[in-house]
Nucleic acid binder design. Structure first.
Length: 276
DNA sequence: AAGGTCTCCTGAGGGC
DNA sequence: TGCCCTCAGGAGACCT
């Protein structure tokens, strides 16, 4: 499940391979691979030169030698692979972008990912313009972010996943962040102290930085194992996906609850439920 | 208006 | 073995 560290790992890998390359041709193999909001068919980008690869939160985009950008969101299972043109098409290959000596392929099993041609405003594509800056952004403002959390009339876990409050955090890092912060996922934002909210944001930043550092080392030909089978990253998780296993801090059994239409993993002792 | 829920999708895994 | 059910979740549409 690509969250900020995984998307940043992909961005770094893409930047290494595709900057300066000219898009010769684009083939689209699945209708859902092009977002409905795309201004034009992806094939219209033939002839464009890739000038850079940018990111905000989980949104990724290719800057081109024209005003439009090619935006990508990996969704649940999207991957970019650098392949030789002669290489057999991968299962679930949705788009192939001919870059001359190499090919950039978009592979996506669950088809929640998409590509789109979009305009930008202040350098940010339309689809990402409403989301908050992520904590890796040089202009990320911690105080502003704390204020956005405090203004939310909802639980901290929901706010962490709200890309308009803080971007880049997904279910895995949200759970890890709350465990590190010793905060129960259902704690109401408005009942938290600003200093605690600040701590949560800093822990989110920290856990994602640590994951990025590990993601960088396991990066192999732009391949990110979305099923977590490579293990390097999974090993450092304290609570996510560890229901029934012991908390690394206190050895209590990790619990899982259904919440906000997804799973939340937490330690019942380190992260006690707040009083009603 | 803002918060909460539903929906899109595929494959894995469990139960019987 | 095969069939049906549940689960995984990012983000936007939709409802209240």
């Amino acid at each position: 499940m690509p969250e900020l560290p995984e998307v940043e790992t992909v961005r770094l890998g893409l930047a290494k391979h595709v900057i300066g390359k000219k898009i010769r041709k684009i083939q689209v193999h699945h209708s859902r691979a092009t977002a409905p909001k795309s201004l034009a068919p992806l094939t219209s980008l033939a002839g464009a030169k890739i000038k850079g690869v940018s990111r905000r939160g989980k949104f990724l985009w290719f800057d081109l030698d024209r005003p439009e950008v090619l935006v990508a969101h990996l969704g649940m299972s999207g991957q970019f692979l650098i392949s030789k043109a002669s290489e057999m098409p991968q299962r679930h290959m949705r788009v192939r972008i001919d870059l001359g000596r190499m090919e950039l392929r978009f592979i996506d099993q669950r088809t929640f990912g998409w590509l789109a041609v979009e305009n930008t405003a202040e350098g940010v594509p339309t689809s990402a313009s409403h989301i908050a800056r992520d904590p890796f952004d040089s202009e990320f403002d911690l105080d502003v972010c704390v204020a956005r959390f405090m203004a939310k009339r909802t639980e901290i876990k929901r706010a962490l996943l709200d890309q308009e409050v803080i971007s880049g955090v997904g279910n895995i890092y949200a759970d890890e962040t709350l465990w590190r912060s010793k905060v129960h996922p259902e704690t109401r934002c408005e009942k938290m102290k600003p200093a605690k909210v600040r701590e949560v944001i800093l822990n989110a930043t920290k856990v994602m930085r640590e994951a990025l550092a590990q993601g960088g080392t396991s990066f192999d030909e732009l391949y990110i194992n979305v099923n977590g089978e490579s293990g390097y990253f999974e090993r450092s998780l304290a609570v996510y996906g560890r229901e029934g296993e012991s908390c690394p801090k206190c050895h209590s059994a990790i619990r899982r609850i259904r919440f906000a239409n997804r799973s939340s993993h937490f330690c019942p002792k380190c992260q006690p439920r707040p009083r009603a």
